[in-house]
Amino acid sequence: MNLLDGLGDTILISVSSVVLGTILGVFVGLAMTYGQRWLRFIVRLYIDFLRGTPVFVLILACFYILSVVGVDLTAFQAGVLALTLFCSSHVGEIVRGALSAIAVGQTEAAKSIGLTFMQTFVYVLLPQALRQILPTWVNTATEIVKASTLLSIIGVVELLLATQQVIARTYLSLEFYLFAGFVYFLLNFVIEQAGRAVERRISIP
Protein backbone atom coordinates (compact mmCIF):
# COMPACT_ATOMS: atom_id res chain seq x y z
CA MET A 1 0.00 0.00 0.00
CA ASN A 2 3.02 2.16 -0.62
CA LEU A 3 1.35 4.01 -3.47
CA LEU A 4 -1.71 4.95 -1.48
CA ASP A 5 0.48 6.36 1.27
CA GLY A 6 2.35 8.33 -1.38
CA LEU A 7 -0.89 9.68 -2.79
CA GLY A 8 -1.99 10.62 0.71
CA ASP A 9 1.24 12.54 1.22
CA THR A 10 0.91 14.30 -2.12
CA ILE A 11 -2.57 15.44 -1.18
CA LEU A 12 -1.51 16.47 2.32
CA ILE A 13 1.48 18.43 0.98
CA SER A 14 -0.59 20.15 -1.69
CA VAL A 15 -3.50 21.05 0.55
CA SER A 16 -1.36 22.41 3.37
CA SER A 17 0.88 24.38 0.99
CA VAL A 18 -2.06 25.87 -0.85
CA VAL A 19 -3.98 26.74 2.32
CA LEU A 20 -0.98 28.24 4.14
CA GLY A 21 0.34 29.87 0.97
CA THR A 22 -3.04 31.45 0.26
CA ILE A 23 -3.39 32.87 3.75
CA LEU A 24 0.13 34.28 3.59
CA GLY A 25 -0.46 35.43 0.01
CA VAL A 26 -3.55 37.45 0.93
CA PHE A 27 -1.46 39.40 3.42
CA VAL A 28 1.27 39.82 0.81
CA GLY A 29 -1.33 41.18 -1.63
CA LEU A 30 -2.79 43.49 1.02
CA ALA A 31 0.64 44.84 1.88
CA MET A 32 1.34 45.42 -1.81
CA THR A 33 -1.94 47.30 -2.24
CA TYR A 34 -2.33 49.30 0.93
CA GLY A 35 1.12 49.21 2.55
CA GLN A 36 3.43 52.13 3.14
CA ARG A 37 6.13 52.69 0.57
CA TRP A 38 8.85 50.85 2.52
CA LEU A 39 6.57 47.86 3.16
CA ARG A 40 5.62 47.64 -0.50
CA PHE A 41 9.30 47.74 -1.40
CA ILE A 42 10.15 44.84 0.93
CA VAL A 43 7.17 42.78 -0.18
CA ARG A 44 8.00 43.47 -3.82
CA LEU A 45 11.50 42.06 -3.21
CA TYR A 46 9.96 39.03 -1.51
CA ILE A 47 7.65 38.34 -4.45
CA ASP A 48 10.29 38.88 -7.11
CA PHE A 49 12.81 36.76 -5.27
CA LEU A 50 10.42 33.83 -4.85
CA ARG A 51 9.03 34.02 -8.34
CA GLY A 52 12.44 34.35 -9.87
CA THR A 53 13.80 31.25 -8.12
CA PRO A 54 13.09 27.74 -9.40
CA VAL A 55 10.90 25.78 -6.97
CA PHE A 56 13.54 23.08 -7.08
CA VAL A 57 16.10 25.49 -5.62
CA LEU A 58 13.60 26.76 -3.04
CA ILE A 59 13.06 23.24 -1.79
CA LEU A 60 16.76 22.54 -1.49
CA ALA A 61 17.29 25.88 0.22
CA CYS A 62 14.55 25.26 2.79
CA PHE A 63 15.91 21.81 3.54
CA TYR A 64 19.69 22.38 3.61
CA ILE A 65 20.24 26.07 4.31
CA LEU A 66 17.79 26.24 7.20
CA SER A 67 19.42 23.30 8.90
CA VAL A 68 22.80 25.08 8.62
CA VAL A 69 21.43 28.06 10.53
CA GLY A 70 20.04 25.75 13.18
CA VAL A 71 16.41 25.39 12.14
CA ASP A 72 15.84 21.68 11.92
CA LEU A 73 12.87 20.78 9.81
CA THR A 74 11.91 17.35 8.59
CA ALA A 75 12.04 16.91 4.84
CA PHE A 76 8.25 17.01 4.79
CA GLN A 77 8.13 20.30 6.72
CA ALA A 78 10.88 21.89 4.64
CA GLY A 79 9.06 20.88 1.46
CA VAL A 80 5.75 22.29 2.61
CA LEU A 81 7.52 25.49 3.66
CA ALA A 82 9.09 25.89 0.22
CA LEU A 83 5.80 25.29 -1.60
CA THR A 84 3.98 27.61 0.81
CA LEU A 85 6.41 30.44 0.09
CA PHE A 86 6.15 29.78 -3.63
CA CYS A 87 2.36 29.74 -3.46
CA SER A 88 2.22 32.94 -1.37
CA SER A 89 4.21 34.89 -3.94
CA HIS A 90 1.80 33.87 -6.69
CA VAL A 91 -1.32 34.48 -4.61
CA GLY A 92 0.12 37.82 -3.45
CA GLU A 93 0.51 38.97 -7.01
CA ILE A 94 -2.98 37.76 -7.96
CA VAL A 95 -4.59 39.45 -4.95
CA ARG A 96 -2.79 42.71 -5.64
CA GLY A 97 -3.92 42.62 -9.26
CA ALA A 98 -7.53 41.88 -8.35
CA LEU A 99 -7.72 44.57 -5.67
CA SER A 100 -6.22 47.25 -7.87
CA ALA A 101 -8.58 46.29 -10.69
CA ILE A 102 -11.59 47.26 -8.57
CA ALA A 103 -12.68 50.80 -9.40
CA VAL A 104 -11.81 53.38 -6.74
CA GLY A 105 -15.47 54.43 -6.80
CA GLN A 106 -16.34 51.22 -4.95
CA THR A 107 -14.23 52.26 -1.98
CA GLU A 108 -15.61 55.78 -2.10
CA ALA A 109 -19.20 54.57 -2.20
CA ALA A 110 -18.51 52.30 0.76
CA LYS A 111 -16.94 55.14 2.69
CA SER A 112 -19.82 57.45 1.84
CA ILE A 113 -22.29 55.16 3.62
CA GLY A 114 -20.03 55.23 6.65
CA LEU A 115 -18.18 51.92 6.37
CA THR A 116 -14.75 51.72 7.96
CA PHE A 117 -11.75 50.44 6.03
CA MET A 118 -12.13 46.92 7.43
CA GLN A 119 -15.84 46.80 6.63
CA THR A 120 -15.18 48.12 3.16
CA PHE A 121 -12.60 45.44 2.61
CA VAL A 122 -14.67 42.56 3.95
CA TYR A 123 -18.05 43.40 2.43
CA VAL A 124 -17.20 45.30 -0.74
CA LEU A 125 -13.68 44.66 -2.00
CA LEU A 126 -12.96 41.08 -0.97
CA PRO A 127 -16.11 39.51 -2.47
CA GLN A 128 -15.34 41.18 -5.79
CA ALA A 129 -11.64 40.32 -5.64
CA LEU A 130 -12.31 36.67 -4.82
CA ARG A 131 -14.42 36.22 -7.92
CA GLN A 132 -11.67 37.74 -9.98
CA ILE A 133 -8.98 35.66 -8.29
CA LEU A 134 -10.63 32.26 -8.46
CA PRO A 135 -9.63 31.08 -11.97
CA THR A 136 -5.98 32.07 -11.53
CA TRP A 137 -5.93 30.71 -8.00
CA VAL A 138 -7.17 27.31 -9.19
CA ASN A 139 -4.36 27.38 -11.69
CA THR A 140 -1.86 28.04 -8.92
CA ALA A 141 -3.27 25.13 -6.92
CA THR A 142 -2.67 22.74 -9.81
CA GLU A 143 0.87 24.12 -10.16
CA ILE A 144 1.47 23.29 -6.51
CA VAL A 145 0.24 19.71 -6.99
CA LYS A 146 2.70 19.29 -9.83
CA ALA A 147 5.49 21.00 -7.90
CA SER A 148 4.94 18.62 -4.99
CA THR A 149 6.72 15.93 -7.06
CA LEU A 150 9.93 17.88 -6.48
CA LEU A 151 9.83 16.96 -2.81
CA SER A 152 11.00 13.52 -3.88
CA ILE A 153 14.53 14.89 -4.19
CA ILE A 154 14.77 15.58 -0.48
CA GLY A 155 13.37 12.15 0.29
CA VAL A 156 9.69 12.83 0.98
CA VAL A 157 7.87 9.69 -0.10
CA GLU A 158 5.06 11.36 -1.98
CA LEU A 159 3.35 9.77 -4.94
CA LEU A 160 6.27 10.10 -7.36
CA LEU A 161 8.93 8.69 -5.02
CA ALA A 162 6.53 5.96 -3.89
CA THR A 163 6.04 5.03 -7.54
CA GLN A 164 9.78 4.92 -8.10
CA GLN A 165 10.16 2.65 -5.10
CA VAL A 166 7.56 0.28 -6.48
CA ILE A 167 9.30 0.34 -9.84
CA ALA A 168 12.61 -0.49 -8.17
CA ARG A 169 11.00 -3.67 -6.85
CA THR A 170 8.92 -4.65 -9.83
CA TYR A 171 10.81 -3.23 -12.84
CA LEU A 172 7.41 -2.32 -14.35
CA SER A 173 8.53 1.25 -15.05
CA LEU A 174 6.25 2.09 -17.97
CA GLU A 175 3.10 0.81 -16.28
CA PHE A 176 3.69 2.54 -12.96
CA TYR A 177 4.88 5.85 -14.40
CA LEU A 178 1.80 5.88 -16.61
CA PHE A 179 -0.32 5.14 -13.60
CA ALA A 180 1.30 7.93 -11.54
CA GLY A 181 0.89 10.35 -14.41
CA PHE A 182 -2.76 9.44 -14.67
CA VAL A 183 -3.30 10.01 -10.95
CA TYR A 184 -1.72 13.50 -11.14
CA PHE A 185 -3.91 14.29 -14.11
CA LEU A 186 -6.95 13.10 -12.20
CA LEU A 187 -6.10 15.22 -9.15
CA ASN A 188 -5.76 18.37 -11.22
CA PHE A 189 -8.79 17.56 -13.30
CA VAL A 190 -10.89 17.35 -10.16
CA ILE A 191 -9.45 20.63 -8.86
CA GLU A 192 -10.18 22.41 -12.11
CA GLN A 193 -13.72 21.09 -12.40
CA ALA A 194 -14.44 22.02 -8.81
CA GLY A 195 -13.05 25.49 -9.50
CA ARG A 196 -15.28 25.91 -12.54
CA ALA A 197 -18.33 24.76 -10.61
CA VAL A 198 -17.64 27.29 -7.86
CA GLU A 199 -17.00 29.99 -10.46
CA ARG A 200 -20.38 29.37 -12.07
CA ARG A 201 -22.10 29.41 -8.72
CA ILE A 202 -20.73 32.73 -7.55
CA SER A 203 -20.69 34.60 -10.84
CA ILE A 204 -22.46 37.97 -10.70
CA PRO A 205 -25.45 38.28 -13.01
Binding site: A103, G105, Q106, E108, A109, A110, K111, S112, I113, G114, L115, T116, V124, P127, Q128, R131, I204
Partner: peptide
Protein backbone atom coordinates in the same frame (compact mmCIF):
# COMPACT_ATOMS: atom_id res chain seq x y z
CA UNK B 1 -14.46 60.07 10.20
CA UNK B 2 -16.59 57.13 9.05
CA UNK B 3 -19.34 58.11 11.47
CA UNK B 4 -19.31 61.73 10.34
CA UNK B 5 -19.33 60.66 6.73
CA UNK B 6 -22.58 58.83 7.28
CA UNK B 7 -24.17 62.16 8.26
CA UNK B 8 -23.90 63.11 4.61
CA UNK B 9 -25.22 61.06 1.71
CA UNK B 10 -23.45 61.07 -1.62
CA UNK B 11 -24.62 60.10 -5.10
CA UNK B 12 -21.83 59.72 -7.62
CA UNK B 13 -21.55 60.37 -11.31
CA UNK B 14 -20.69 56.70 -11.92
CA UNK B 15 -23.36 55.35 -9.50
CA UNK B 16 -20.78 53.05 -7.83
CA UNK B 17 -23.28 50.41 -6.84
CA UNK B 18 -21.75 47.24 -5.45
CA UNK B 19 -22.00 44.84 -8.40
CA UNK B 20 -22.06 41.67 -6.29
Amino acid sequence: VARQRSMTGMAFQQFNLFPH
